[in-house]
């Protein structure tokens, strides 16, 4: 991970976000075997796909190991919960994985507000999410609903 900054100090408010607002983007990586082994240990998932270069070449037909989808999702969620601030909340998240993250690749995630609740008693915003590698190739796409406090 190249980005270790957690920026939760700032609180976002519902009134401050409009459709079209770009949320903070984050870039992580380049992916190393240390990243994937730490994640495998946490998840108790010893699938060789995520750390064993020889095995993935011979058995999965890939040039090297890849990040787990859950790991990429965790980094994306970290970006969102950091942006939300302590009183905001991630309500929904839909993700479709479209391309793998290989050893050495970076992951850049972005989020853009596309819809906003018209009910101040239920102050949510919907965002489109996208992930890309260092070549700009899409690695995932998604949508989330965030709940923000009102002023």
């Amino acid at each position: 991970m190249s980005d270790d900054s957690t920026t939760i100090a700032e609180q976002r408010f519902f009134e401050d976000v409009q459709p079209g607002t770009e949320l903070a983007a984050r870039e992580y990586g380049p992916l190393t075997v240390i990243d994937t082994v730490r994640w495998a240990g946490l998840q108790e998932n010893t699938q060789q796909l995520h750390y064993d270069r020889d095995w993935v070449r011979d058995h999965a037909g890939l040039r090297t190991f890849i990040a787990s989808g859950a790991y990429r999702q965790a980094l994306l969620m970290r970006m969102l919960t950091d942006w939300l601030g302590p009183r905001g909340r991630l309500r929904k998240l839909g993700i479709r994985h479209t391309y793998s993250t290989f050893e050495g690749d970076t992951m850049r995630f972005t989020a853009r507000a596309v819809e906003k609740s018209e009910d101040p008693a239920d102050p949510w915003i919907a965002c489109e999410l996208e992930g890309a590698n260092q070549e700009g190739r899409q690695i995932l796409t998604g949508r989330c609903t965030l709940v923000l406090p009102t002023r």
Binding site: D3, T6, I8, R38, W39, G41, L42, R78
Partner: peptide, 16 residues
């Protein structure tokens, strides 16, 4: 301890 290992794996040191 599980949360600490999550923080180590992701860098997500959110005080929440």
């Amino acid at each position: 301890s599980d949360v600490r290992r999550y923080v180590d794996a992701t860098g997500d040191a959110n005080p929440l």
